[in-house]
Structures are given as C-alpha cells and as structure tokens.
Nucleic acid binder design. Structure first.
Length: 352
DNA sequence: AAGACGGGGCA
DNA sequence: TGCCCAGTCTT
C-alpha cells in the first residue's frame, strides 16, 4: 500500500466518522434482507427517489417470506414509477429462491450472494460488507468518480480495461478490517463532497493530494466513452371500453415496461393521424367487423426516457357489447385499474 | 463488447 | 438538453 493510497483510505474513514452527516433508513442495517432490498431499489436510482419505495416495501413485506409469498401484480404495483422493472421481476425471483430453496436463510458468502437474480458485483459487495463484514469493495458511480479524480485516471469507466483497472484499485484501497464502514464512507463521500457537478473541493479533505483538483481536471474525470443515442417512438393508445370496462394487457417481450400493463397499443414509426391508426392492419385485425365510437378528445403526452422519447396519443373508443375480449387481453372496470401496474405515461393520462 | 432498460433532479 | 444516479442482464 503506497502512502497516497493509505492517505486516501484513512482520510475517508475519518471523514465518515466525524463529518459524514448523511442519514438513510437502511444505514447501519445488519439484516441482509433489508440491505438487499435497499440495494436493489437503489440500483441506478437516486437515494431520495428510492427512499419512500424502501419504506413502503419494508412496511408491506417485513420479511423475505412475506415478499416471496406476495402476488406478482401486487409487488409490481408497489414498484410502479420506480423504473427498470426487470429489477422487480428479479427481486421476486431471488426472494422466492431464498424463502424456498434456501429455507429463508440469506446466503452468507460473496459467491452465494452473487448467484441471486438481479445481484451483480456491486450489490453482492455491498451486502457482503454491510451484513457480514466481508472484505469486498463496492464499485458504483460514486466510487468510479472519487477514484478517477483522486488518482487522476482518465481511462473510460465504461470499457473492459476501465472496469478492470477500477476494480483492482477499489480493492487495494478498501479498509480490510472495516469494509462496511469504508464502503459506506466512499459512497457517501462521492454523493456529498465529490459530487458529479460542482464538487465541494474547497472543503474536501482529499484535495491536497487529489490529482484532478491539483490539475484543475475535476470536470473532465471520470471519462465515459459511449454517447447516448435517443430514439423517437410514437405510441397510439386506444382505450377500448364497454361502458366503464377497459381492455388492458400485460406487456411482454424485450422492450421497455415489460410486465407492466397497458391499453391497446398501435406504434407507428412517425407521427400519425388518428384515422391512419384506426385504419391500420393491426387495429383492423383487433376490432374486426365491430363499429366503435370516439368517446373522449385525444390527449397527447410526451415522456423522455434515458434511451428514447415517447410521444403518446390517447384515444378513447367505445365498442359494442358483442365485441369479445381479444386474445391476451383482460377486461377491467375503471376502479379496478388501481390493482395493476402501468407505465408512468399511462398513470399520468389516467390522472387527468 | 455493446445495447437495453425508467424516471427524476439539476444546471 | 445533457448528464447522472448505491447496476444488471442479454445479445
């Protein structure tokens, strides 16, 4: 361990003990179930955003057995609005593995933990260190940033060589005797002091030996190589209904919002008029010979996602009583809609 | 190795 | 807008 590295570790531990005022409901938690739950919720999610979800999940499911026994739809409904819905699916699978095959016993080794669905290197290290004091270093967005700046590393973090380099370095500066405290320290430090924008270098205890600060490069590291490509998509949601009963279905396949519900969807590659949509082959096939009547003015809502811009247009259509529920759909009354999980864009529409 | 996957806060 | 957030999984 070089002097520069030792200073780094000691400094973070001291900062954590005397200056870290960040509080969170799962901090200091030793129950692996609660730690795991918090980490799944926090993947790619800001603490402030995940916090209320954590409280609601712990309240609804105080034990892994309770979560494992819950109906899928109820859990997805609780997850609604948090995004990255595969996390919810994987979380349920992991809970059922623990409650079933593992007889309620949470795995207690890094290798065992990482076998759980939805648990990768970061989450396994977090659980292993927080719950079991095992010497595994976490590597998340905060850690990449703090390491890249302090050690002045401009290797892109989103490449194989970058990941290898940062993984190695993170392990070297880990406090072996207090891995949990250290992991908590470096993440809190990254969130509170070594922030992405406008880091608090003036009050930073590492500044004197921080490579990026000394060279005025804090805005240039860490480096990411990939640039985002944003696609535009045009969704036409047709709210087919008989009286107050709507036809909805669960989204499947490899696309956004898998496992969430939605109304009849016609997607076009460019903006399209309602008439065009209603004459489309997809809608013709669905509606068949039945007549329909527009029962509400069309509403347009735009939603910006990380990788795509969704332009949605909602149109309500009354269909006759003879119209049969199409394959894959279910019919639910308006007040039953609250029992199903929907994408935010649909929740927004329904709230109007 | 590269893509895909949500939603929200902030400058 | 663009960037980032206690990342993981699939192709």
């Amino acid at each position: 361990m070089t002097d520069t590295k030792r200073f780094f570790t000691d400094c973070l531990m001291t900062w954590n003990r005397f200056q870290n005022t960040r509080t969170m409901p799962w901090k200091g938690e030793k129950n692996p179930y609660r730690i795991w739950l918090s980490e799944i919720i926090l993947q790619q999610t800001r603490v402030e955003q995940g916090w209320p979800y954590y409280e609601r999940f712990i309240s609804a499911y105080p034990t892994v057995e309770k979560l494992a026994a819950a109906p899928d739809e109820e859990v997805f409904r609780l997850w609604q609005g948090l995004g990255y819905y595969a996390r919810c699916k994987n979380m349920l699978a992991a809970a059922r593995t623990i409650a079933g095959a593992y007889k309620g016993q949470f795995p207690q080794t890094y290798e065992g933990i990482t076998k759980l669905k939805g648990v990768g290197a970061y989450t396994a290290a977090a659980i292993a260190s927080f719950a079991f004091s095992l010497p595994h270093a976490v590597l998340d967005g905060n850690v990449y940033r703090v390491l890249a700046r302090y050690f002045g590393i401009d290797t892109p973090t989103d490449t194989t060589p970058g990941k290898k380099l940062f993984t190695q370095l993170a392990g070297e500066v880990l406090h072996r005797e207090q891995p949990g405290e250290y992991n908590q320290a470096i993440m809190d430090f990254g969130a509170v002091v070594c922030k992405p924008q406008q880091p608090a270098c003036k009050s930073c205890p590492l500044a004197a030996r921080c490579e990026a600060f000394q060279k005025g490069l804090t805005d240039l590291v860490p480096v990411k190589s990939k640039k985002l490509v944003i696609k535009k998509r045009y969704f036409h949601y047709l709210l087919l209904h008989q009286k107050d009963r709507f036809f909805i279905r669960k989204r499947t396949g490899k696309d956004i919002w898998e496992n969430l519900h939605e109304f009849v969807l016609i997607e076009t590659s460019a903006p399209a008029a309602d008439e065009t949509v209603l004459e489309s082959a997809d809608f013709r096939r669905l509606i068949g010979k039945y007549p329909y009547k527009i029962t509400a003015p069309a509403v347009e809502i735009k939603q910006q996602l990380t990788h795509q811009t969704i332009h949605a247009r909602f149109l309500q259509l009354a269909v006759p009583a003879a119209f049969k529920t199409p394959e894959g759909y279910l019919q639910v009354s308006e007040d039953q809609l609250k029992n199903y999980a929907f994408p935010k864009i649909i929740v927004d529409y329904l709230q109007r």
